[in-house]
């Protein structure tokens, strides 16, 4: 058990960690809102979609299928396959949470496991507490939802140059997250190199063209992290 002030401190710390993610989400969700509303979906539905899904690729693919008149099963399968990668992230985070995490809290926090929240949470040195996770999740979810609302409301042409420049924002964040640890660890460099190589092979070799982007990430991750764990097992004292 820990005190109220400590919970508050954890929450505030988590919230601060989430701010860059929330900012990064706004242009992306803005584009999504703009796209979905201009394609004919009502603003309330598009905002509800962002709030209830909080995911990029899966949500974009699902929305495309809704607009194209796809069936429920097709929508469910496509979205699920793109999102299977969350199982790896969720499994990884399940090993990092503090003992104070209750079962209902796990159900709540799981809602907020996005690529970006996962990466920030997994780089934390300490065990993850519920107030920290709540603080970390709340900003990005708000940013994602608000961005969608703004995009939907404006639903007007933006200067093309600004729109396309914003597309790189989240990838820039990913790069900022993986490069500093890669400078310090040869194992990390190799794991990144393997998973990027696999990802590129699956993307460009025609034989693999049927593999969806979701499965591409899963396969690349399994091989990259698997080879890494085999060649560079962590030392016993490194884990806590």
């Amino acid at each position: 058990m820990y005190k109220k002030e400590e919970k508050k401190k954890e929450f505030v710390y988590g919230f601060k960690q989430g701010i860059p993610i929330a900012i990064g989400y706004i242009p992306v969700s803005f584009s999504f809102g703009l796209m979905a509303v201009s394609a004919g979906l009502p603003v309330w539905l598009v905002v509800f979609l962002s709030l209830s899904n909080v995911t990029s690729a899966g949500q974009f693919a699902g929305t495309n299928l809704i607009l194209a008149g796809g069936g429920y099963l097709e929508i469910a399968l496509t979205t699920f396959v793109i999102n299977i990668r969350y199982m790896l992230m969720s499994l990884s985070l399940s090993q990092k949470v503090s003992d104070s995490f209750t079962l209902p809290q796990r159900f709540l926090a799981a809602f907020g496991i996005t690529d970006e929240i996962f990466s920030v949470a997994s780089m934390e040195k300490k065990a993850l507490t519920f107030p920290f996770m709540a603080g970390l999740i709340i900003g990005p979810v708000a940013g994602w939802t608000l961005g969608t609302l703004l995009g939907g409301l404006i639903c007007a042409a933006r200067p093309e140059a600004v729109a396309s420049a914003m597309g790189i924002a989240l990838y820039g964040m990913f790069i900022a997250i993986i490069i500093p640890p890669a400078r310090k660890s040869r194992a990390v460099v190799m794991i990144i190199a393997i998973s990027v190589a696999i990802s590129c092979i699956l993307r460009y070799v025609p034989m693999f063209s049927a593999i969806s982007s979701g499965f591409r990430v899963i396969i690349a991750t399994l091989i990259g992290a698997g080879v890494g764990a085999f060649l560079f097992p962590i030392k016993e004292e490194e884990e806590t």
């Binding site: 990884s92 996962f118 990838y171 794991i191 990144i192 998973s195 990027v196 990430v217 690349a220 992290a225």
Partner: peptide, 15 residues
């Protein structure tokens, strides 16, 4: 070890 390396592999492949 595998789980500790997952973030790097995931983010590399996503990017």
């Amino acid at each position: 070890s595998f789980l500790q390396y997952v973030p790097y592999a995931v983010l590399g492949a996503l990017t």
